[in-house]
C-alpha cells in the first residue's frame, strides 16, 4: 500500500523545480506541517512565506506576489482556503487573473472526526462557480505529480484539492496517461459509465472490476479536471452506456455530479445517479468509515450500478 499522500507529491515536485526556478513561492497559513511543506520551507526559506492563521491574507498576498512575477502556491486546509478566503480567490486571483495556485489540502472529509468545520464538502461547487477559476482533484500521487508539472507551465489561477491520507496507486510511476484538461479513461464498457474525481476514482475503478466479474462492462473516467470539465469524454462515455453514475467526496449540490448531469441531459439524455456525501454534517469517523457508511466504496458504487441496470 502506497504511503505517500498526494500533498507530499506536490511538495516533491515544487522542490524539484524551486532549485532552478526562484520565482516559485510556497505560502502557508500555519499549515506547513499539514500541507507536507516543511521540507520546502526548510530547504528554500527564501522562497517560503508564512502568513500565520490568516487565510484571507494568504490568498491576497499570493495574488500580490503573482502580480510581481512570482509563481505562488498557497497551501492551506481546503475547508478554510475554499470558504474563509473565497472572496480573495474570486477577486484577487480569478477576477484579477493572477497566477495563483491554491492548494486545498486535507480536502473533503479527510479530517474525519474533527467535524464539519474541518470538512470541505462544498469547495468544488464554490470554486467552480467563479469565472476564470479552474478546479482539479487528482486521484493518485502519480497523477498529482503530472498535474503540478502541467500547472507550473501556465500562468492562470487554479484550485487543487487533495486529501490528507495516502491513496492507493492507480497509475504506474513514469507511465501516467495524463493530458491536461482531459479525463483519463481507466477502462471502457457499454453497460454503465462511472465518472469520478479525487479519492473516489480508486473505488470506482475497483467497482468496475467487481462488475466485470459479474459480466457487466463499465467505462470509468478519472475526471481530475472538474473545471474545465472534459465534456467530450463525458458525452462519449455516457453515449456508449445505458446508465451513468458519478462519485465524489462532496456535497450532492454543485459538484462533479451536477456538472456531469448537465452535460448528459443536454447532449445524450439518460439516467444519471450522483453518489456524494449527504447534505448534512457527516457521521463521525475516519475517511474509510465515513465512505463505507455512505456507500462511497467499491461495493457501494457497484451495487448502485447493478440496481440501475436491474441486475
Amino acid at each position: 500500500m502506497n504511503k505517500i499522500p498526494n500533498r507530499q507529491a506536490i511538495c516533491d515536485v515544487l522542490m524539484e523545480h524551486a532549485k532552478e526556478d526562484k520565482d516559485i513561492i510556497v505560502l502557508c497559513s500555519d499549515s506547513r506541517g499539514s500541507a507536507s511543506m516543511t521540507p520546502f520551507a526548510d530547504t528554500y526559506p527564501e522562497q517560503f512565506v508564512e502568513t500565520g492563521i490568516a487565510e484571507q491574507n494568504l490568498v491576497s498576498i499570493s495574488a500580490g506576489l503573482a502580480k510581481c512575477g512570482k509563481k505562488p502556491y498557497a497551501a492551506s486546509p481546503a475547508c478554510f482556503l475554499s470558504t474563509r478566503s473565497y472572496e480573495q480567490a474570486k477577486i484577487d486571483c480569478a477576477y484579477s487573473n493572477t497566477n495563483v495556485k491554491l492548494i486545498g489540502i486535507s480536502g473533503g472529509i479527510s479530517y474525519g472526526a474533527l467535524g464539519m468545520s474541518h470538512h470541505s464538502a462544498q469547495d468544488i461547487a464554490a470554486m467552480s462557480a467563479i469565472p476564470n477559476m479552474r478546479v482539479y482533484l487528482p486521484s493518485d500521487r502519480f497523477q498529482t505529480r503530472c498535474l503540478i508539472e502541467a500547472l507550473l507551465k501556465d500562468e492562470k489561477p487554479a484550485y487543487i484539492r487533495v486529501g490528507r491520507n495516502p491513496v492507493e496507486d492507480i497509475y504506474e510511476e513514469g507511465h501516467v496517461p495524463f493530458e491536461m484538461n482531459k479525463a483519463t479513461v481507466l477502462c471502457e464498457g457499454t453497460d454503465a459509465a462511472i465518472i469520478a474525481c479525487g479519492e473516489m476514482v480508486k473505488p470506482s475503478y475497483d467497482a468496475a472490476k467487481l462488475l466485470k466479474e459479474e459480466g457487466i462492462s463499465v467505462t470509468v473516467l478519472d475526471m481530475y479536471c472538474v473545471k474545465p470539465l472534459d465534456k467530450e469524454a463525458v458525452i462519449k462515455a455516457a453515449s456508449n452506456a445505458k446508465v451513468v453514475v458519478t462519485a465524489e467526496e462532496h456535497s450532492p449540490f454543485g459538484g462533479l455530479g451536477s456538472m456531469v448531469s448537465q452535460v448528459v441531459s443536454e447532449n445524450c439524455p439518460k439516467k444519471v445517479v450522483n453518489l456524494a456525501l449527504p447534505d448534512s454534517p457527516v457521521i463521525t469517523g475516519t475517511s474509510k468509515q465515513v465512505f463505507d457508511h455512505y456507500g462511497l466504496n467499491a461495493q457501494g458504487i457497484a451495487d448502485t450500478v447493478k440496481k440501475l441496470l436491474g441486475r
Partner: peptide, 19 residues
C-alpha cells in the same frame, strides 16, 4: 488589480512589496 470589495488592497500590496 481589480478591486471593489473592500479590505483587499493592503493584503495584495503586502504580496507585491514582498515580491
Amino acid at each position: 488589480m481589480n478591486s471593489g470589495s473592500l479590505g483587499h488592497g493592503l493584503p495584495v500590496c503586502v504580496g507585491m512589496a514582498l515580491a
